[in-house]
């Protein structure tokens, strides 16, 4: 699960993540049950925290990725959240003023192979988004994550 060391704000409600499920499940209660089952049943897990320069970029990546449904949620499951380390409330600030925001993605797969394929697919899509940021919005990613340089492409 998520690293509890940082002070975080869960920025989005589950609305975006579960928009495709909401067609089937009317009650958030049911959604929550489904989610817990999928996440806990699938044995192979991976959590990534992808750092972005500011809240705007992290949330844009989240929004661009969220509409596509998972093709086999019983095989591969993924849940995204946008987590800002800024202590101020998100609502009070302009999106670009909220710095150092992470896109945290929890993956779970039925086997390590399924997990690997799914995570690769996620990175392929994220690559396009980051390239868009670089091309049309100036620099985006922090060049260093946990002391190691990050190179896209």
């Amino acid at each position: 699960m998520l690293d509890a060391a940082h002070k975080k704000i869960r920025v989005f409600t589950n609305h975006f993540t579960y928009s495709y499920f909401s067609q089937f499940c009317f009650y958030s209660f049911q959604i929550a049950v489904f989610r817990i089952t999928e996440m806990s049943v699938l044995p192979n897990k991976l959590t990534l925290a992808i750092p972005f320069q500011n809240y705007r970029h992290a949330s844009l990546a989240y929004k661009a990725l969220s509409p596509d449904p998972l093709l086999k949620p019983d095989q591969f499951y993924m849940e995204m959240s946008v987590i800002s380390q800024d202590s101020a409330l998100v609502d009070d600030k302009h999106e670009e003023d909220i710095g150092a925001t992470k896109l945290v993605v929890e993956f779970a797969g039925a086997s390590d192979r399924v997990l690997r394929v799914g995570v690769n697919g996620f990175f392929e899509s994220l690559g396009v988004i980051v390239e868009c940021f670089n091309a049309f919005d100036g620099g985006v990613l922090e060049s260093v994550v946990d002391g190691k340089p990050v190179v896209f492409e």
Binding site: L60, D68, S125, F133, F136
Partner: peptide, 13 residues
């Protein structure tokens, strides 16, 4: 889907 991702991103940006 690959192109839609790019379209969504530039539309949002």
């Amino acid at each position: 889907q690959s192109v839609a991702i790019a379209a969504r991103t530039i539309s949002l940006m």
